[in-house]
Amino acid sequence: MRPSGQAPRTGRRDLSGAVAALEFYDVARRFPVPGGGTYAALEGVSFAVARGEFLAIVGPTGGGKSTLLNLAAGLLRPSAGQVLAFGAPVDGVNRRAAYLFQQDVLLPWKTALENVMLGPLLHRQPRREAQEHAMRWLARVGLAGFENRYPHQLSGGMRKRVALAQSLIVGPEILLMDEPFSALDVQTRALMENDLLRLWQEDRKTVVFVTHDLDEAIALADRVLVLSAGPGARVLGSHPVALPRPRDVTEIRLHPAFVEVYREIWAQLRGEVLRAYAARAPTEGSAAP
């Protein structure tokens, strides 16, 4: 295990001299366990995300991917190490990031429009302006005409679109996404992925996209980070994806380079998935009399 608590190296610059959008230095996060003691979800995690980069993170379930995003969002503090956004330590909620949660988080008592307006209103934009702004964003995610529906009156895919508009309307520099499309059917999912790429292509925000679907990771990202199985998950490898853009997620899967990268990453991920599975099996078995 690496020594933690060393002096943080803040504000490392990449080749072009720009500060990275997001940096993790030897980050650990431990949670107290009900019976006493702690469970280390992450241990010694280090990586950086360049400005404008689309990074995908894959890893077995329970490996600490959501924890990692919560750290980047400033919703959790690291137990050790440091998290930087644009060279500055993340202290409290990361105001330069937006977060698309794994769960449904639209406010059920607000309509689609009111949900999307929320960010601008919280940033003290006048109501009229916020409303017009939100209408434009709903149109951009293909939901013109659904402004006055409540979340429960929308399909799962529509709710994700509203959530996407809600996150993007505040103009974040970093977009954190936690398995945003995993609950959707295959067709809707491909549509949403293409929409996301189209929106990303427009202004090239920094994106950190967590998924357990390797296909999705490669189809979308510039680089794929592989996380090991927990406890004490860490970064196993970083794989650049040299596929042309703009991409269509369904067609890109047939590209020869896609298959090659897939094989390379899967070789690394497979062992971890099996390890995560094996770690779970005995506890489940022991529950039987």
């Binding site: 919703l75 909620v93 937006a98 949660f101 769960q103 505040v170």
Partner: peptide, 11 residues
């Protein structure tokens, strides 16, 4: 998560 999401939006 509702609280966290609203916090992230600037609340």
């Amino acid at each position: 998560n509702l609280l966290d999401n609203t916090r992230m939006l600037g609340a």
